[in-house]
Nucleic acid binder design. Structure first.
Lengths: 266, 266
DNA sequence: CGGACCGTTCCAGGGAACGGAACATCGTCC
DNA sequence: GGACGATGTTCCGTTCCCTGGAACGGTCCG
């Protein structure tokens, strides 16, 4: 190979930073505590590299060293709390709690990222099929009421070219047909509310309403309940009232200058 | 300076990783969206360095670029959710929600890190002096009922040498005297419950109970309410029941092998 | 004892990171 | 208009941090 002509495309530089994030992402909810060797395998990095890197992460407080392995540090919670979305969460929490107290059902707050819903808060109840995804979880938007109502407030035109095909499915009830979804979105847009039955999880139904500021849906609130009970329209009204209240709080905060955020232009 | 003899002790190498974390920490709840120059000043790093570094962080999904500046990415929520503490949060949530519904008061879940309490969940209500610190916030342990009850379950002997002097104070009612605190901790330990009135925030009172597994307090639950009402002992009992239930859930999860965590030995 | 797994240390070479300086814009003030 | 200050951006030669294979020491089986 005297002069040039590399055999492999070099497979990207992979700086230390991306390796560090690969390591952090190697932790997941299935295995919250990992040994060095497990991390090495899960991330595909050589052991010696992992050793050096994770020692530094421990120094920096991003990872905690436990007797049986390594663990994501609670300090990350503090970092994550500084997301603008975290600010919205704090703002919305009292209203969400009130809705939960009044209805007795599960209550969720979420935003849209790309084609996923990201849960910011989730007040769950015992009974019911298990809450599954917790705070920070990402779910495909087409499978949840929250996702649909958020999609419905996007520009439906460029949405068509935007959404992934094939679309993900979580249960057999999930909407996967593009045209069908677009039609449903239009209905949701005009109704101002979205419903879903067992599309994200069997035995679970959900109804969602957007938090609208200046014609933008900056987030959405939802009530979820067992699929075999039917909640009256009282829930719809309470939901709308809650979303409106949160929107008002956000707008106040925004005009006070402390917020200034959100999906593109604002 | 012809040959050697550096004037400054070089002030530590400061690898790229620590710079990256300095940048991330430059975001705080007061300014959730920051421009490049603001970041440069807040972190003390040269502009060109910030520019190069933050571009990479955006690539990696740790930071989002907004029209008006940079913002911590919501992806961090997902990372932070993989803390073992996050697992405890998910486990405890239904019980916390039930306690909130039953009592109508604010409910908190927290763990101890060093001498601080770290809030894992906080279900707040409107009325009341404002919730202040949100999820992930760290508060000095001696100023809150949660902190005291967690301290009381540590080894009180080595605690004496452990705690910082002078101790922090948040209001004029905060306990700052070491001996007084140690005495109080012993009472709390035998009573199994801690109370606090306006020590962390004026107008706010709080009562807390530990989540005990194998004689270790892995966390604590609290109910907070306006300081000028007096809640009956019914709250005490409900709190104890809630904590016991959470402890049971943790123990189940632990014996199932999925948990395996927590303050030292376990 | 041999094997498998674990965590740890070492080292020389290469390439990523560094940050000062110069540049390109914008908005503002006289 | 023009000088100003603050912004975001690019360039580049030097430095030194990062790299990961290999070898070592430890523990726990069979």
């Amino acid at each position: 190979m005297s002069s040039g002509e590399r055999l492999v495309p070099a497979a990207e530089p992979t700086s230390i930073l991306s390796k560090a994030f690969d390591l952090m992402r190697a932790f997941n909810s299935d295995s919250r505590v990992m040994t060095l060797s497990e991390l090495s395998r899960a991330s595909g990095l050589p052991k010696s590299t992992v050793h050096r890197l994770i020692a530094r992460l421990v120094d920096l407080g991003a990872v905690e060293q436990h007797r049986t392995g390594y663990v994501v540090s609670v300090d990350l919670l503090q970092l994550a709390a500084n997301t603008p979305a975290g600010g919205m969460r704090d703002l919305a929490l009292p209203a969400l709690a009130a809705l939960h107290r009044w209805s007795g059902h599960g209550v969720q707050l979420a935003v849209l990222r790309q084609f996923d819903v990201v849960y910011l808060e989730k007040i769950a109840t015992h009974r019911m099929p298990a809450p599954r995804a917790g705070i920070g979880a990402r779910l495909p938007a087409n499978c949840t009421a929250l996702g649909k109502v958020l999609l419905a407030w996007e520009n439906i035109e460029d949405l068509d070219s935007f959404l992934p095909r094939p679309m993900s499915t979580m249960t057999t009830h999930s909407t996967t047909d593009v045209d069908e979804l677009l039609l449903e979105l239009q209905k949701i847009r005009s109704a101002g509310i979205a419903r879903e039955r067992e599309e994200s999880q069997l035995g679970l139904a959900c109804v969602a309403v957007p938090i609208v500021i200046h014609d933008f849906a900056v987030g959405a609130v939802a009530v979820s309940h067992s699929a075999d009970v039917d909640v009256g329209s009282g829930v719809d009204n309470a939901l709308r009232a809650t979303a409106a209240q949160i929107a008002r709080l956000c707008r106040d905060d925004l005009s006070r200058g402390k917020f200034r955020y959100f999906p593109r232009e604002l």
